[in-house]
Write a protein that binds this DNA or RNA. Sequence first.
DNA 1: CTCTCTGCAAATAGTTTGCAGCGGC
DNA 2: GCCGCTGCAAACTATTTGCAGAGAG
Lengths: 139, 139
Amino acid sequence: MTFDKAIRLIRENGMKRTPSREALLRLFASDGRYLSAADVRQALAYEHPAMSLDTIYRNLSSFAELGILEETELGGERKFRMHCDRDGHHHHFICMECGRTEELDLCPMDEAAGLLPGFTIEDHKFEVYGRCPDCAVAK
Amino acid sequence: MTFDKAIRLIRENGMKRTPSREALLRLFASDGRYLSAADVRQALAYEHPAMSLDTIYRNLSSFAELGILEETELGGERKFRMHCDRDGHHHHFICMECGRTEELDLCPMDEAAGLLPGFTIEDHKFEVYGRCPDCAVAK
DNA sequence: CTCTCTGCAAATAGTTTGCAGCGGC
DNA sequence: GCCGCTGCAAACTATTTGCAGAGAG
């Protein structure tokens, strides 16, 4: 998702365009990795040293609710990345070393649903963890 | 995994057979759901009211390391269930209402690996969430 | 008798909330 | 100027750790 579209969504939902939010969205628009609140704070330490963790937490949660960010739980932390606008539902590979993500054009749910007659499916999670080619070499 | 096999694993790793551990393993052997430390405490409140959360945390972590328990992150909590000894790698459906789990004879990794040439895959997670037939009706 | 396990208490990490002032619109 | 946004401080939740005594082998 682009920075502009995210801003539009924010305005459409009656939220204000503030410097904090601009900085957060700009960061996520340019960094494809999953970032924790602490990661975000560090990334913005130079540009926005005054931005508090509270603000980061509050905004990341709001953004996730609006569908601007995708959320996952990684190593006991909530992590976020910009939502992919691409056609088609898909999942991600996540590099444990550098955090790089790769889209996987694959969703096992069609098959899985057939194995669960009578069950109501509401959500699912499929993530692959490992090392990207760069980090695999470095090891 | 059976209670007896779990006890054997514990002994083989130089750990002692204590009343706490017996109670924990007996619980997991009879309850197929994913349980948090707090869930376990409540389940054992009558039989072992003195067992502290500390003990529960420490033992669940040890058991998970030995492969006796499987671990997952659900709603921001670490949850555990007895490891399935069944042949073949598989995943789970988890009922969001009652916690019931269902085994899914399906793993998307074979396909996924083909989409990631040059990447080193170390782990993956595939879980399906929803309501089991009983809970779907109750809604 | 030794060495592990346990409960207690305190510490820690990540996250959330109440409040009063600041700042978009 | 109004109402939402922010920083501060404090609270909260889940979890971990140091320590000294209790208990398994």
